[in-house]
């Protein structure tokens, strides 16, 4: 029996918004440590890794490991039926072929339940080694979303260069070129607005804007975003999800012909 109860169903609504454009379907792997999801977009250029820890739920029970193949468009439809302040419970029997979502309004006057069929998805997992990245940049998530949006007007690719002076985002194309430089902020009173850069050695990598703009759909989940870069390996874009977990996007770089 699997049962997970979350007082803030808005977290799940935002998680779905953060992945539904990149992925059509995904397997939610449930165990006693929580819910994990790893999936690549259809082109295998990017990968999403979601982790929701069991201790972040108000109630969590998972008697046996359960892999739920989910069509994300269907789950999005169900999550749209939930109010932001509803309490959400996900329930599934062991080796179930369906999962039930229950939503309770805050005053308990409205109780809804939706049963969704599960899919048989083949499990393909990539092993992502713990990596000590050359550059780790933390910046306001809204700022990063704005940069990706603005630069994607100039070209299909963004060059992200990180030196000890700061981080530079560049794009060039038919209409011209654009550069956005962010310096490390000095002492800011609100840490959500800080830009911090830990650089072991400078890195400059090229990425497709399209995917970065998919990743920034996760912006409502966290006021800050963390970019981790090393030469010749995928970029990691991480958004914390409250106290319950995180969503990490990996993006393969574009390399010189």
């Amino acid at each position: 029996m699997f049962e997970a109860r979350l007082v803030q169903s808005s977290i799940f609504k935002k998680v779905l918004e953060a992945i539904k454009e990149l992925l059509n379907e995904a397997t939610f792997d449930c165990s006693d440590s929580g819910i994990q999801l790893q999936a690549m977009d259809s082109s295998h250029v990017s990968l999403v890794s979601l982790n929701l820890r069991s201790d972040g739920f108000d109630q969590y029970r998972c008697d046996r490991n359960l892999s739920m193949g989910i069509n994300l468009a269907s789950m999005t439809k169900i999550m749209k039926c939930a109010g932001n302040d509803d309490i959400m419970t996900m329930k599934a029997q062991d080796n179930a072929d369906s999962v039930t979502f229950m939503f309770e309004s805050p005053n308990q006057e409205k109780m809804s339940d939706y049963e969704m069929k599960l899919m048989n998805l083949d499990q393909e997992h990539l092993g992502i080694p713990e990596t000590d990245y050359s550059c780790v940049i933390k910046l306001p998530s809204a700022e990063f979303a704005r940069i990706c949006r603005d630069l994607s007007q100039f070209g299909e690719s963004v060059v992200i260069s990180c030196t000890k002076e700061g981080v530079k985002f560049s794009a060039a194309g038919d209409i011209g070129s654009a550069n956005i430089k962010l310096a490390q902020t000095a002492n800011v009173d609100k840490e959500d607005e800080a830009v911090s850069i830990e650089m072991q050695e400078k890195v400059s990598l090229t990425f497709a804007c399209r995917y970065l703009n998919y990743f920034t759909k996760a912006t409502p989940l966290s006021p800050q975003v963390c970019l981790s870069m090393s030469a010749e390996v995928p970029l990691v874009v991480e958004y914390k999800i409250g106290e319950i977990g995180h969503i990490r996007y990996y993006l393969a770089p574009k390399i010189e012909e």
Binding site: V45, G127, P129, A252, I255
Partner: peptide
Amino acid sequence: DHLQTVMEKFYEYV
């Protein structure tokens, strides 16, 4: 222009 790589170039299936 640049060549887009894919995940399998960097990570192994487990």
